[in-house]
Amino acid sequence: MNRIIIGGLFTALLLNCQATQKMMLPDSFVRYAKPQKSVKAITASGVRLKTFRFPNEPRGDLELWAASVREQLEKTGYRITASEPVGARTLKGILNETQAQYQGNEFSYLIVVFVQEDWVYTIEAAGEKAVYNKVRADILKVLETFEVD
């Protein structure tokens, strides 16, 4: 019984020690205080940006997950407007930028995929096309500052 409790505590401790995702945000974005392990930010005009991580299961490399993301977006009807590699501090990623109509408005949606061993990291951003375009350059710049501690 004690072993089970100790095992559970150890697992909880490991989960709590998940890697922290970091980015240097420009002034146009305001960072949320929570969550602390990922980056979540928004602009005054409502363009949202957040980082996520997912288990790399089944295990795949960057090309596989980037191609899967692209295929999923295309199948869902998103129009891919850019698809290119990006270099962050220590990671290499692949960016897919799309456009879609959402709730009657034209939206832009960006997703960058990074793979680091057991985890797949994504940076996603979305907003109405007109306001997204105003901060697009800022978004592309901050992608380069992404890192995982």
Binding site: K40, R48, S68, Q72, Y78, Y109, I111, E124
Partner: peptide, 22 residues
């Protein structure tokens, strides 16, 4: 939808899923 992927996190990408997860 008909484009449901076998990998759960892939089904969450896209505008509605992102705004929800945000």
């Amino acid at each position: 939808g008909p484009s449901y992927s076998g990998f759960s996190w892939l089904n969450e990408i896209g505008i509605p899923g992102f705004l929800e997860r945000f």
